[in-house]
């Protein structure tokens, strides 16, 4: 993993940099408009409603792919910060169940690391809008944890 990223993570942890800086370095995360709200080291991931993330124009509803991309990116950052010695996570697979339409509202994501092994991390991800106990989508993903960012 690149040294600048390790330095950035350390700066986020020490409070010298906002956690939002981890979003700003990833063009796709910025394109979606992801926000990170931090209370200490507890992070909430927010996808503010945006026209550019619309899918079904008649409801209107968010594009399921935009919600999935948001959940995957939230899990990547969450996993990155769970590791004492951060290694760059790469998505092996991503599986999502859509439970409700994602309405044209702000969306929130919560992550839980199910298993953090030496080479693979497994993360559960839930997205909700109105109530935390009424998720619009649940997902799980496996990430390969590699030291070298140039190798898949």
């Amino acid at each position: 993993m690149s040294d600048p990223l390790k330095t950035l993570i350390a700066a986020c942890r020490s409070g010298e940099q906002p956690y939002q800086a981890l979003v700003e370095r990833v063009p796709y995360a910025q394109f979606l408009g992801i926000r990170i709200e931090a209370r200490g080291e507890e992070l909430t991931f927010v996808l503010p409603k945006a026209d550019s993330n619309l899918g079904n124009p008649t409801l209107p509803a968010l594009h399921g792919g935009a919600v999935a991309g948001f959940m995957e990116q939230a899990a990547l950052i969450f996993l990155l910060l769970e590791m004492g010695e951060p290694r760059l996570p790469k998505t092996i697979d991503f599986t999502i169940d859509y439970l409700r339409a994602g309405l044209f509202k702000d969306t929130f994501v919560e992550c839980r690391v199910t298993r953090l092994g030496r080479r693979v991390g497994n993360v559960n991800i839930e997205a909700w809008q109105t109530r935390r106990d009424e998720p619009i989508a649940i997902a799980r993903a496996h990430f390969l944890l590699s030291d070298d960012s140039s190798q898949p």
Binding site: V26, P27, Y28, G64, G69, E72, Q73, S150
Partner: peptide, 15 residues
Amino acid sequence: GNPDTGVLHGGAVFA
């Protein structure tokens, strides 16, 4: 998704 390599984000391919 990876600013060091220019590889597309998995989420973009998914969407």
